[in-house]
Design a protein around this nucleic acid. Structure first.
Lengths: 347, 347
DNA sequence: GTCAATTTGTCCTCAAGTGGACAAATATAA
DNA sequence: TTATATTTGTCCACTTGAGGACAAATTGAC
């Protein structure tokens, strides 16, 4: 492939390079007539502006970075959560990047590394992205936030319940937990266990708040012993479920901190010969494929992860197109309650 | 952050810009003494070469693109396989990219779009990556392969059983299926069903070959009616499992085309009150988290996806560092048999 | 037809490096 | 000491576009 540059397009459309640039960058002062001629030349030649050159000369890089928190060795892979949260995030982000002519770069960071700040700074100064998307738990990490602030890169924190720098895009975790708990209460449950999420994730606390609020609103007391800490892993869920389900006055319903935890609860329930939803109702958060396909399918709150990521990209692109400044807004996206067979009135 | 450029490093280390460049690019003709001084300056200033400038001036872009085949709309998300194959691929690739100072760009393509060739070409000419990683099923797509060839970008096809252009990194699917079938035969199974994978994936055919070979080696006839087509989806798996398990002379063991299919088989077995492994043994491919955590955990072949991706990156980086040419080699990585509770002697 | 407004072109600088030719400085060997 | 090899520096061209200043051409209004 011989390189097709802006000059070739200009020659073909018999206009100046400047005009082609104006068309490519959507500047308003081009007549539809010319614009069309230029576009035709672009299409015919299959021209795409060289992103490196655009970055170097202009003020934008057309790159957005998403940091993923993982250990930086292959061995640690197995311990990584097999969730598809990140996957969904990437998907939503890529879709919008594509629309805007942007590209998504996924970069690994290890929050526990002592090189963390250096790593973030290195990535930013090497790539000079127009924006960064942070996902839990790195959207709460002070080192990361500080590094981003110093680099003056606009960033969006996805799914973070905490106020702080940068824009936020999230669902209302508290409201979601509240709705889910309400649903269980409506079905007649009075003893509702809650395997909380990892304390590292602020969403866990918000969900717990929603749970408490719903009980309070229904005039039900909160039995603290029914709140068992989980950590978003299967193993943690198993331990928590065992604690809840082996007691004589076991709950008639359990709210799991996330899908992984819910699967663990199912696992333990099956072992203990506790039928779902016959003996125990189960509800959870996230709506990953596995809980749609489990037996029975689980009642969950669908977190609009891809949509959140899409909006994050929109915000960053808009900021880059303007002055590179991103307002500190908090964007709440609606969640969806998926009522499935795992919740039913208590026995 | 004021931009730290190569000039600043040069001043600080009191050497020429050229020397800094030599150090950064690991050219051999620099004395350890100087190299160290320059490195110190780099560290102190937190300098990272601007990737856009490097790309523009030099012959490398330090970018590797991974194409993901998905529909380009948010709505289609749900139908996307929730597998973590892509996730694992990305992880392995990112790890190695990091080591080499490279960056991984994930780009969406839609194999069914009539804009496919244009899309691929656009991405390539805009980013000018040093290499491309193709995963199934796009590593067999003639349009994609043609576009890559025309762009003269080195690429690695991961997990493809088909010979063809570009380098290949994969596991031996046929051998894996053979070992798995052997295992079942050793346990005493004679009637072994096989829910084949999607015909779009060549690995499916290789696995079928392995299955046949193992039976032949054991002197067992192949009952063609025990080979039921699946398509790697849960729904397809359910249909196939129903066909296999509802017949009076149902198999005593089933080999599932992938984990998703295996979960579907479990689902149907449970509904039909067929105990695993008591009444039915079940083995599968991929070893995703869900089959490790299922009840019982499933016997699988662990595909070294992350390792394959890591090697793909190594190959591409090496090619870029040399002359940008990638040999057409076929790299086979060892798989791992995970024998778990889902396989046992027949009743 | 003149004036004003808008569109298009010209021309130049700049981004931050690479890469090559070759000279200068330094080290090593004979 | 001289000749030779190696390291380091100098200098310049080159990459591909953005962006700004300003002139030229075109269009529209009156």
């Amino acid at each position: 492939m011989r390189n097709v540059t802006i000059v070739h397009v200009a020659e073909r459309a018999r206009v100046s390079v400047k005009t082609v640039s104006r068309v490519v960058n959507n500047e308003p002062t081009v007549t539809p007539d010319l614009r069309e001629r230029v576009q035709a030349a672009i299409d015919q030649l299959g021209y795409a502006p060289n992103i490196a050159a655009r970055r170097l000369g202009g003020s934008r890089s057309f790159l957005i970075v998403a940091f993923n928190d993982r250990k930086l060795t292959l061995e640690n892979w197995a311990s990584d959560r097999g969730n598809n949260w990140i996957d969904r995030m990437q998907y939503g982000a890529m879709l919008r990047c594509d629309v805007h002519g942007y590209h998504l770069l996924c970069e690994l960071i290890d929050l526990e590394s002592d090189q963390l700040a250096r790593r973030v700074q290195h990535v930013l100064s090497s790539l000079r992205p127009d924006g960064v998307i942070l996902t839990p738990p790195n959207c709460e990490d002070p080192t990361v936030l500080e590094a981003l602030k110093r680099a003056q890169v606009p960033f969006v924190r996805m799914g973070s319940a905490a106020a702080g720098p940068g824009a936020r895009v999230r669902m209302d975790d508290q409201a979601a937990a509240l709705r889910l708990t309400e649903h269980l209460v409506e079905q007649g449950h009075r003893r509702i266990g809650f395997v909380t999420g990892s304390a590292r994730f602020l969403a866990s606390h918000a969900r717990e708040d929603g749970y408490r609020k719903a009980l309070a609103a229904a005039g039900l007391p909160v039995d603290e012993s029914l709140l068992v800490p989980g950590d978003f892993t299967f193993e943690g869920g198993v331990a928590a479920a065992e604690a809840l389900l082996s007691r004589p006055d076991r709950p008639t319903a359990i709210l799991a901190g996330n899908d992984e935890t819910a699967l663990a609860v199912m696992h333990v329930a099956r072992r203990l010969d506790i039928a779902i939803p016959g003996d125990l109702s189960l509800a959870t958060f996230d709506d990953t494929p596995s809980v749609r396909l489990s037996l029975p399918p689980l009642t969950t709150v669908r977190q609009p992860v891809a949509e959140m990521a899409a909006q994050a990209v929109d915000l960053l692109v808009a900021a880059a197109a303007k002055d590179g400044k991103l307002s500190r807004a908090d964007h709440l996206l609606p969640f969806e309650l998926a009522l499935r067979a795992s919740t039913a009135p208590p026995p």
